[in-house]
Structures are given as C-alpha cells and as structure tokens.
Write a protein that binds this DNA or RNA. Sequence first.
DNA 1: CCTATTGCTATTAATTCAGTAGCACAAGAG
DNA 2: CTCTTGTGCTACTGAATTAATAGCAATAGG
Lengths: 124, 124
Amino acid sequence: MTPLPKQPVRGSDTGRPIMAALDLLGRRWCLRILWELRGPPMTFRALQAACGEISPSVLQQRLKDLRAARLAAHDGEGYVLTATARALLPALLALQDWSEAWAAEIAAAASEEEQHGTEGKSEQ
Amino acid sequence: MTPLPKQPVRGSDTGRPIMAALDLLGRRWCLRILWELRGPPMTFRALQAACGEISPSVLQQRLKDLRAARLAAHDGEGYVLTATARALLPALLALQDWSEAWAAEIAAAASEEEQHGTEGKSEQ
DNA sequence: CCTATTGCTATTAATTCAGTAGCACAAGAG
DNA sequence: CTCTTGTGCTACTGAATTAATAGCAATAGG
C-alpha cells in the first residue's frame, strides 16, 4: 500500500500530507531513487545500476509506489520525475549541502575522540 | 550498522556524504523521528506516542543510529536534536510545504480520474 | 513499602528486502 | 524469418528488518 495524502499512513491516521510524505520518502531506496532520477530519463536497468545493483524486485516495488504517488513516470525514454517531484529537488540539493556539513561534524568528532581515547597509542 | 560519511553504505561505496544521508534518512521512522523532535525535548515514551505507538525496539534502534550519527542526543530533559540536526529543519519545513502541493496534485488527479472512470456514479 | 515513570531489553511473529533466475516483448541485423 | 540484444518486469527462496508484546532495573515521590 502506497502512502498518500488524505488517508491514514503508518504512524498517523490524520491524513496530513507531511505524514504521507515522511512515510513514503522514508522507505528504503526511495530517496535514493529520486536522487538518481534528478537528471535525464533512465531505463529500469540504468536506474538499477545507478543504485548500486539494487534488486529488481525492490526497485519495481518502489517505482510502483512512486508512480502511484505521481512522483515518477515512465515515458518512451525511460523513467523520469514528474513536475511535482522536481519541485522536491531543491530540498534534496539542500540535503546534499547539509550532508557536507554533517560529514565535517562527524570527522571533527572522530578526531576529538582520538584525543581522549587513544592518547597512549598516538605516542608510539 | 549506522551509515556515516566517509564509509561505504548501502548502494554506494564511495563514501560521499549524500549517500550516507540518503541511506540513514531513508530508514523507516527516521524522518518521522527527526520531525517529532523538532520541538522541545521528548522522553522516550513521549516520542513513542508521537510516532503513533511505534514499537520500542525499533525506536530504540533508530535512536541508536541517530545518536551514532550525532543527530540526536539524550540529556536530562529527554531526547533532543543536535545543532547539526537542527540545520536540517529548514529542509524538513520545505518538505512540509511541498507535501501540501503534492496533496493538491493528488487530489486533482483523483477528481480527474473520476471524470473518466466513474461518470455514472458522479451523477447519483 | 507502594506506586508511577523512566529508558531499555528479550522474545517471537510478521513483513519487507535481497539475490537469482528467467519470461515476454520489441527493435535491429543478417 | 531467425538470431541477437535490450527492455520492463515477475517468481521464487532465504536473509534481514520491523512489529508487537511483555517485562526489567533504576529513579523519584508519597
């Protein structure tokens, strides 16, 4: 069952659109698929390869969800994002920027732990 | 295993931060938990209730991931987002706005299908 | 001592995902 | 027509993840 606005979804039966979005986008591979489809049309198998050889059964299921949610479509060239889905791309690009800062934060925390946890070892 | 930048994650072994972010945030309940934690600190059980009585084992697993990723922390008041995680909130608010437009699009598509598929019924 | 709340764990069942093989269809080459 | 190639997609089985329930240890208040 594909989560859609105006109907109950996992963890919320209020029908609020944000809840359906959090449910749908929170499914495994869903964000990744949207990310990989941000460019030109991709065939099923190209998309599969882009996602690191995701199994076709799962990709098929996710594409079915995304099509039911009108976020992806399949035309003669391959799979593409709908206009509605492309409106989500700025948020994904923001996520990319954020992830860089996140990586820096993780790296800083790691080297900080090195100070406390491996003082002896750092000497040798 | 918690997906982190600078290391291979599901579907990508390049270590690119965006890939770790897509993997982590794409796990079930993860986005929802970040969403529910956007406000004041919440106890474990309050968070559980906010997520619609999510089972404690899954919530525990997700909180473990989020803490390993330094996106959530547990202080005396309860669970809160870290500064890094709060930097993600604008994107989540953008997602909320987007979801409203998405809902409108779905509603429009539904009433359009009614024109084609259930012409008789719309007359009753 | 009794009660209530906290974070958390253990156990088992249900669901989802992964991996593999292969089908039906269409287009192009010979 | 036949052979090959690429397409979207399905079936099947085992592995991993998630769900649901019960309950524990620690803490605080009465």
